[in-house]
Amino acid sequence: MGLLSELKLAVPWGHIAVKVWGSQKNPPVLCLHGWLDNANSFDRLIPLLPQDLCYVAMDFGGHGLSSHYNPGFPYYHQNFVSEVRRVAAAFKWTPFSLLGHSFGGSVGGLFACMFPEMVHKLILLDSGPFFPDSKEMENIMTYRRRSIDHVLQVEASQKSRRAFSQEELLQGLLNNNSHLSRDCGELLLQRGATKVAEGLVLNRDRRLSWPENSCDFMSKELFVHSARSLQANVLMIKALQGYYDVRRVNDADKEPMLFMVDTLKSILKERFQFVEVPGNHYVHMNKPQILAGVISSFLQDLPRTTSSRL
Rank of each mutant, 00 (worst) to 15 (best):
K265S: 14
L169Q: 11
S229W: 03
G192M: 02
Q231P: 00
L258C: 11
G199H: 07
K220C: 14
L222Y: 06
R204Q: 01
G242N: 03
V249T: 15
V246G: 09
N177C: 01
L180Y: 12
S165E: 06
F223L: 05
E167M: 06
L264T: 08
E186S: 04
I140Y: 14
L170R: 04
L169P: 06
M218S: 00
N176I: 14
P132H: 09
S160C: 07
Y244M: 07
S219R: 02
Y243G: 14
M260I: 15
H225M: 14
E255K: 13
A252H: 13
S226Y: 03
T263S: 12
D183Y: 08
V154T: 04
T263K: 05
L169I: 09
V261A: 12
L235W: 01
M141S: 15
L174H: 03
V154I: 13
L152T: 04
K195S: 08
T194Y: 03
F164S: 05
Q190M: 12
H179E: 15
E198P: 03
S160A: 13
K265L: 11
G199V: 07
V224W: 03
P129G: 08
D262G: 12
D205A: 00
P256N: 06
G185Q: 01
D251C: 04
R182I: 09
T194A: 10
R162Y: 03
S181W: 04
E221C: 07
R247P: 08
L240A: 13
A197M: 02
V151Y: 07
Q166T: 04
A239R: 01
Q158C: 11
E136I: 06
K135G: 12
A232T: 05
W210P: 03
N203Y: 00
S134C: 10
L202K: 08
R161H: 07
D205S: 00
Q241M: 08
E138M: 10
R161C: 01
Q190V: 07
A239E: 00
N176P: 12
H179G: 11
E167A: 06
V196M: 10
Y143S: 12
L222I: 05
R144T: 15
L222P: 00
R248W: 10
P256G: 03
L222Q: 05
Q166S: 08
P132I: 13
L235G: 02
M260W: 11
M236Q: 15
R145F: 13
D183E: 15
M257S: 11
K195R: 14
V261N: 10
G242T: 02
V154A: 05
Q171L: 07
L170N: 04
E136V: 12
K254S: 14
A163D: 06
C215E: 05
N233H: 09
H150Q: 07
D149E: 15
E138N: 13
E221I: 06
S165P: 03
V234E: 04
C215Q: 05
M257P: 02
V246A: 15
N233S: 14
E221P: 04
Q231E: 02
D262A: 12
V246W: 11
A227K: 01
V246H: 08
I237G: 00
L180I: 10
V201G: 00
N176T: 15
D205M: 00
L152D: 08
F164T: 07
T263C: 11
R248G: 09
R182A: 11
C215I: 10
N177L: 01
L230M: 02
L173E: 09
S229M: 09
H225K: 14
N176V: 13
P129M: 11
S214W: 00
L235N: 04
N176S: 14
C215F: 08
I237N: 01
S157C: 05
